[in-house]
């Protein structure tokens, strides 16, 4: 559905996006994972035609995206991070406006408005002003506006940002439904659990580059199945890792100031690890053991933690 090759963008001296390449098929949910400011939104804006790339090509359904390609833009749906709706208008009026921009009118428009309101389960509040909606409901209408014209490719820029768990759950279900109907979805988020549960494939971005890409299982295999122990405290991570090496033979995933993460075969290794730390006279303020997840993968690939 979309094929991106060598996409790059520079703002002055800052290289916001560097040589990004990937492709997404119909019905696939493709996640962009990374902390704020790593180039996710810039990449999305280039793929939507809002920004012109310095280099690279974007092919949507076999046609190249360029500023004048109205036909290609009709195939794109965009759900921005902000709630881009008119608060004084009702959900129906907002949707009718967005539909009108895509040339929908009359019965076709009415029918689509009804369809998407049903999709986001807001039919009963359709005529209420957006300003009276909760944050989660507004985000659902925001999503509905992005898919109203039935695009085959939908860009969703952190659609669950600032939404409570119940609201997130509802939105994620809608995204799955959309993918099941054959739409290709490019989804940016900095919630790792969300990306892990939702996305078929994930690209991990840092400093404008894609550092790793694949399904969660493929990314996990880069770290190893097993478990990881994360110790945090007032210590020098690399020095502690060196000291522990004599008594403990686990692979060091990451070490830094106040942080040491090691890979272990199973959960029972935790006791041995704590004993080894005590033998070195070091106490951890925070100690946890968990199965390999995207946070571990991100730490392994970027050398830093992904903070919400």
């Amino acid at each position: 559905m979309i094929e991106v090759k060598g996409l790059s963008k520079r703002f002055g001296d800052i290289r916001a996006v560097r040589d990004v390449s990937f492709s997404v098929e119909k019905g696939e949910i493709f996640g962009f994972l990374g902390p704020n400011g790593v180039g996710k939104t810039t990449s999305i804006q280039m793929m939507c035609g809002l920004l012109t790339p310095d280099s690279g090509t974007i092919m949507i359904d076999g046609k190249e995206l360029n500023p004048d390609s109205t036909e290609v833009r009709r195939k794109i749906g965009f759900v921005p991070q902000e709630t881009a709706l008119y608060p004084d208008l009702s959900a129906t009026e907002n949707l009718r406006f967005w539909g009108g921009l895509y040339g929908l009118k009359g019965d076709a428009l009415n029918s689509r408005v009804e369809d998407v309101l049903r999709l986001v389960e807001l039919t009963n509040r359709a005529d209420d002003k957006i300003a009276t909606y909760s944050g989660g409901m507004q985000k659902r209408v925001n999503l509905a506006a992005g898919v109203l014209h039935n695009p085959s490719l939908v860009f969703m820029d952190e659609p669950t940002a600032g939404v409570d768990p119940q609201g997130r759950f509802a939105i994620l279900n809608i995204v799955r439904e959309l993918a099941a109907s054959g739409k290709a979805i490019i989804y940016t988020t900095h919630y790792m659990d969300e990306a892990q549960k939702l996305c078929d494939r994930i690209a991990i971005m840092d400093l404008g580059e894609i550092l790793g890409m694949g399904s969660f299982e493929e990314l996990r295999d880069q770290v190893g199945k097993g478990f990881q122990i994360f110790a945090k405290g007032d210590f020098d991570g690399p020095k502690l890792a060196h000291q522990l090496r004599k008594e403990y033979e686990g692979e060091v995933l990451h070490s830094g100031r106040g942080l040491l993460a090691v890979v272990v075969a199973d959960a029972t290794e935790l006791g041995r690890f704590v004993a080894a730390m005590k033998a070195q006279g070091v106490n951890a303020d925070d100690l946890k053991i968990k199965e390999t997840d995207l946070e571990t993968v991100f730490l392994k690939l970027t050398g830093r933690e992904l903070r919400d």
Binding site: G49, L50, F78, P80, A84, L85, Y86, L101, Y102
Partner: peptide, 13 residues
């Protein structure tokens, strides 16, 4: 500033 114009500009407008 609130992203509305960006959204409009993704459309054929």
């Amino acid at each position: 500033e609130n992203g509305m114009i960006n959204r409009i500009l993704v459309s054929p407008a």
